[in-house]
Write a protein that binds this DNA or RNA. Structure first.
Length: 1099
RNA sequence: GGUCGCGUAGUUCAGUUGGUUAGAACGCCUGUCUUACAAACAGGAGGUCCACAGUUCGAGUCUGUGCGCGACCACCA
């Protein structure tokens, strides 16, 4: 057996077994197998870039649950895919294009840009998939989807159409975060705040009378954005502010453009305590001012900006100039006109676009919205439907506290802005044009004479009624008078709303998927398609049913041929031919009733509970009339050692692939699982690894302007790097190395072909060490299988240690199910690790060594055979129990074991008490598809475990003595035990283990054993042990040791006595608790008595 | 400002419904290359469970307040 290496080699196992699993189709999940379905939908990674630690944690949890359920006999689907991530991806491609070629998107045009992004997507999707596979992700890769592929596009288009038809989608105005660089609106969550050094200017506006002549009064106000005064439409004060009461209703003149605007009172906008108490109102460029405008619509609204951030015609002489340049001009002009009062420096929190890193402008624009509130007739709207699903328990959160995040957010019922001014994404399927003179429907289906239905269609045009009239302020009263919705039953593929603008009626026509002829007709009639695309979350919200082929109900969704080709032989017995119904959707989309055995869980991070989880529930209920998952598990977030979020821009991110290379996929998975508990955050302290000698150099925080980045403590040099100067390095702290090297940082790109210190974390040694331990345990077993014959094992053949390990195995196997079903990965990991290492390796393997060495004689060989069979049974169960955590090492061991011991004795779950405990069975072709261990609960024996613990305590005490007296391991000692007859008998029966485990020869055990002089002693609760060490004993040291022990005991005795002397304790505490304290006290007193006797002896 | 979470050994974390002498891993100290494993084995040291108050016979655990840290949401003339 010398060919089994001493160390587990993760890289070769990873290379060998993943293709093996794929080729055999083990990860495939298909309808019609008769197994209960289990569904996990992957939280879509963006195609923007590489995977990070968050993905690694997220993926590990999902793979664990999927592999566990698969072994339990579920048809376990883990659906993979990627997200087109509109803004993020377009921004990254645009930025690269600008940097490398100096081109903007307007230079290349819509089609060319989209083509470039598709190319980017192909590269990055491949990379992401290969990263996931290197982790061992057991997704059904044949089913991989992309949010822009045809299947998803159809779902998106149809959902939009349905919502539009149902009056749930409307067009309105909103003040958005406008990215002037990318020229698009960005969502609130795509904006980050950064404090910048700015100024706070104070100006005044002159109050004027009705003829426009100055009255001599002035209103003073302060602003951080003077240029917006060009768009002011009012000055606002608090209604109860006596300083201004007399002025309300009068007007002021804006000196820079001579526009006269009213002075209004608004309690929500103005604050008496702040500044001068007066504030200028710029509705089109400030969210609060916009809200004020909605309350006071008579003041009007003026947009002064072009989409690129330059001023429009309202900028007058500054039209076409960037807003920031205009700021200085406005100040200068105000100053020249005598209305400038002062300036102070101030740190200003300024919103920046996450994508372009440029400041965003509040900007009023036309957007599309999904109505979230309840219907006018009181029926629950989308938000309420989604809230109900969680409130009545159809969807459950783990940990449950996250339900609050979900419910609070949905409870606001704020309309969902779904349009984005981008080119990369699902284009909004709405065409706008003027009302056709012969009616809209005729336009699409032809003249009345040529079409028998056209009369009916004209009637539809005529009776189109106003169904939704929203006056929540989202609409501009001048442009949109209301939304008209036709009764769309007769025309199923197009629906429209009418809008009156500039006295004319305009049609907003929405066309369902699959009708290019209708689109062509519209375009021929001068209709134009909306240039915007949909919010990325609109398509990802449909993920759970879109990927399963919805809205097609008459055939299954297509499989990915490239992935299919990787499978040489599909073991699936299921007919994959096209069916006449969508059995994939029917099988894997969850149902509300748990009785059908269907299980499903969404495993995700807390920051997208609102953006994604809530919206999946909402669209699931809307489209499928059923929830998209029964459980939502929210896992912790990984922070660095300073408690900061890991991110590329901070330089504290660990690359999972670096970890896999360094520690192996199994080790990384196992470590990750060990810290995936119910807490909110997990800290993962990082270090830099010297590329020359692998020494770890700790990090420190480094302030650079407003940014805080992470750098090595031994940083040499400074940031920012001055032109032409060498880049900063880290100095290795290893005295033998001392070399300097570049390090991974966002602040520079390393020089090519020079070594770079990577960011790593020592915490993954936990998993690596465990894998190696497990490997060696299996190696030991395989080295001791010489002459192994499969055969059953009966209860009477089991030794104490066999009974004990089987009892423990049963306990642990059941714990695993409990922990995993509650998504407590950390607890499950601890349980299996402790069992493997501390019980199986440290005790069981050590205890059976003598039996395995026995070779002579029939009796001996039977003893050996039993030991081998039990050993294999436990090892076999362990390989199965660990498979979801560490699949590669488990497959490697499974296959090796299969060669040596293809039939192993497995737990016999039979209820027959006389049946064998273990019966041999052939093992499966792969551990991935093996059965999850079903270990009988009846094996658990508490009293046996207690007796065993006594044996362990004795052995530890003997080893302690050996260590204190520095006795070499090979030197035997004598052992005398003073104890009750029954314990003495027990000791005698395991005497060989004293010898085996600690080279102690049990000379005597019984009640009348006396302590030999010159002995080291130890006292356990119900036994005292003596080890004669004539000549070796250090009387003083031994005395001191015993005194210390006695002191500890006295302290605890005092505590317990205190409790029992407290009458209210004995009166009020439960009897069993009091009894327990009494027992413990008695035990402690007995132990103290022994120790005191020993002390007396010694002195 | 609102909501949620966290504060336990040098470090990272466990600690079920309150109830034996508060645990683990890493690190540290002392031995050991003992025939599976030095990525290991054996032994050991190390804790006023953030503070104060309350509930209780009993608080690491429950309640309140304070301090420190973090996240999400809202806001910031």
């Amino acid at each position: 057996m010398s060919e089994i290496p001493k160390h587990y080699d993760p890289q070769s196992a990873q290379q060998e077994w993943f293709p093996f699993w794929e080729q055999r189709g083990y990860f495939n999940a298909d309808p019609g197998t008769g197994k209960p379905p289990h569904t996990i939908m992957i939280p879509l990674p963006n195609v923007t870039g590489a995977l990070h630690m968050g993905h690694a944690l997220n993926g590990t949890c999902q793979d664990l649950i999927t592999r566990w359920r698969r072994m339990q006999g579920y048809e376990a689907l883990w659906m993979p895919g990627t997200d087109h991530a509109g803004i993020a991806t377009q921004a990254v491609v645009e930025r690269r294009m600008l940097e490398e070629e100096g081109l903007t998107r307007h230079d290349v045009g819509r089609e060319a840009l989209v083509n470039r992004i598709w190319k980017w997507k192909e590269v990055y999707e491949k990379r992401i998939v290969s990263q996931q596979k290197s982790f061992g992700a057991s997704c059904d890769w044949r089913r991989i989807r992309f949010t822009l592929d045809d299947v998803c596009a159809k779902a998106v288009r149809h959902t939009f159409f349905k919502m539009f038809r149902d009056g749930l989608i409307y067009r309105g105005k909103r003040l958005v975060n406008w990215d002037t660089f990318l020229q698009t609106a960005v969502a609130d969550d795509e904006v980050f705040e950064e404090d910048i050094d700015g100024h706070f200017w104070t100006f005044n506006y002159p109050v004027v009378d009705e003829s426009g002549a100055p009255t001599g009064e002035l209103i003073r106000f302060a602003t951080t954005r003077p240029e917006t005064m060009l768009g002011d439409t009012a000055v606002c004060v608090h209604p109860t502010d006596e300083r201004y009461t007399a002025l309300v209703g009068k007007s002021v003149k804006i000196p820079v453009n001579d526009r006269v605007i009213p002075i209004i009172a608004d309690a929500l906008l103005a604050d008496k305590e702040k500044g001068t108490g007066a504030v200028k109102v710029t509705p089109a460029h400030d969210p609060n001012d916009y809200a004020c405008y909605l309350r006071n619509p008579h003041i009007g609204i003026i947009n002064i900006l072009n989409p690129d951030g330059t001023l429009n015609e309202y900028g007058q002489e500054w039209e076409g100039i960037d807003r920031l340049a205009v700021r200085d001009k406005v100040i200068e002009k105000m100053s020249n006109l005598g209305h400038f009062e002062g300036v102070e420096d101030r740190r200003i929190p300024l919103k920046h676009s996450d994508r372009s890193k440029t400041p965003v402008e509040p900007y009023l624009s036309d957007q599309w919205f999904v109505k979230m509130d309840d219907h006018a007739d009181g029926k629950p709207g989308l938000a309420q439907m989604a809230m109900d699903a969680v409130e009545d328990g159809r969807v459950r959160f783990f940990p449950s506290r996250y339900a609050k995040t979900y419910l609070d957010w949905l409870g606001e019922k704020r309309d969902w802005c779904i349009s984005r001014q981008l080119w990369w994404g699902h284009r909004i399927p709405v065409w706008t044009g003027k009302m056709h003179e012969k009616g809209f429907m005729n336009l699409l289906v032809g003249e009345p004479s040529g079409n028998p239905d056209s009369k009916a269609l004209q009637a539809i045009d005529a009776k189109a009624e106003v169904k939704v009239n929203y006056s929540d302020g989202s609409s501009d009263s001048e442009e949109t008078s209301g939304t008209r919705v036709v009764d769309a039953n007769s025309i199923r593929d197009v629906t429209f709303q009418t809008v009156s603008r500039d006295g004319e009626t305009w049609i907003l026509a929405c066309v369902d998927d699959g009708h290019p002829e209708l689109e062509a007709k519209l375009e021929a009639a001068g209709f134009e398609q909306d240039p915007d695309v949909l919010d990325t979350w609109f398509s990802s919200a449909l993920w759970p049913h879109a990927t399963l082929g919805w809205p097609d109900i008459d055939h299954n969704p297509p499989l990915n041929e490239e992935e299919l080709a990787k499978q040489t032989a599909s073991p699936s017995t299921v007919d994959l031919q096209p069916s006449t119904e969508n059995t994939v959707l029917n099988t894997f989309y969850p149902h509300e009733t748990p009785a059908d055995g269907n299980h499903s869980v969404l495993i995700t991070s807390r920051d997208i509970i609102t953006l994604w989880v809530a919206r999946m529930v909402l669209t699931g209920l809307y489209n499928m009339r059923d929830i998209p998952f029964r459980h939502v598990h929210v896992h912790p977030k990984i922070l660095d050692g300073f408690g900061q979020t890991m991110s590329k821009s901070k330089g504290n991110g660990v690359d999972p692939l670096d970890l896999i290379t360094k520690y192996g996929a199994d080790a990384v998975r196992f470590s990750i699982a060990s810290f995936a508990g119910e807490t909110q955050d997990v800290r993962l302290p990082i270090s830099y690894e010297c590329p020359h000698c692998e020494t770890l150099i700790p990090p420190k925080l480094y302030k650079l302007g407003a940014m805080t980045v992470v750098v090595p403590t031994t940083l040499k040099g400074e940031f920012p790097v001055p032109q032409g100067q060498p880049k900063p390095t880290l100095a290795c702290t290893n005295k033998k190395c001392k070399q300097e090297s570049q390090f991974s940082t966002p602040l520079y790109d390393p020089e090519p072909n020079q070594p770079v210190a990577a960011v790593v974390s020592e915490r993954f040694e936990y998993g690596r060490n465990f894998c190696n331990k497990f490997w060696n345990a299996a190696r030991f077993a395989m080295m001791n299988l010489e002459g192994y014959q499969p055969g059953e094992v009966t209860a009477d053949q089991l030794q104490l240690e066999d009974q004990w390990i089987l009892s423990r195995l049963s306990t642990v196997a059941h714990q695993m199910n409990e922990y995993l079903s509650r998504y407590q990965f950390d607890a499950a990991t601890r349980a299996i690790r402790d069992f493997t290492w501390n019980e199986f390796c440290d005790w069981y393997l050590e205890m059976i060594k003598p039996r395995l060495r026995k070779k002579e004689g029939a009796e001996q060989s039977e003893e050996r055979a039993v030991a081998q069979r039990v050993l294999l049974a436990v090892l076999d169960s362990l390989v199965r129990l660990l498979q979801p955590f560490t699949p590669f090492i488990c497959e490697e061991l499974w296959q090796r074991l299969k060669e040596i011991a293809g039939e192993r004795a497995l737990p016999n779950a039979s209820a027959d008490a006389n049946a064998a405990v273990l019966t041999p069975q052939a093992c499966a072709d792969s551990v991935v598809i093996a059965n999850w261990p079903d270990v009988p609960r009846s094996w658990q024996d508490e009293s046996l475990e207690k007796r065993f613990a006594q044996l362990q305590d004795t052995i530890i005490a003997i080893r302690n003595v050996r260590a204190i007296y520095n006795l070499p391991p090979g030197v035997p000692v004598k052992l005398l035990m003073r104890t009750t007859p029954d314990v003495a008998q027990e000791m005698q029966s395991v005497a060989s283990q004293f010898d085996n485990l600690t080279k102690a020869v049990l000379e005597a055990a019984g009640a009348d054993v006396e302590r030999p002089s010159g002995s080291a002693s130890f006292s356990l609760g119900n036994a005292d042990g003596f080890i004669p060490l004539e000549g070796l004993i250090d009387r003083e040291a031994e005395l001191a040791r015993q005194q210390k022990e006695a002191d500890t005991l006295r302290k605890h005795i005092k505590g317990h006595e205190g409790k029992l002397n407290n009458e209210s304790f004995t009166a009020k505490a439960p009897a069993e608790v009091v009894e327990q304290v009494r027992e413990t006290l008695a035990g402690l007193k007995k132990q103290l008595q022994s120790v005191e006797e020993i002390i007396e002896d010694l002195s």
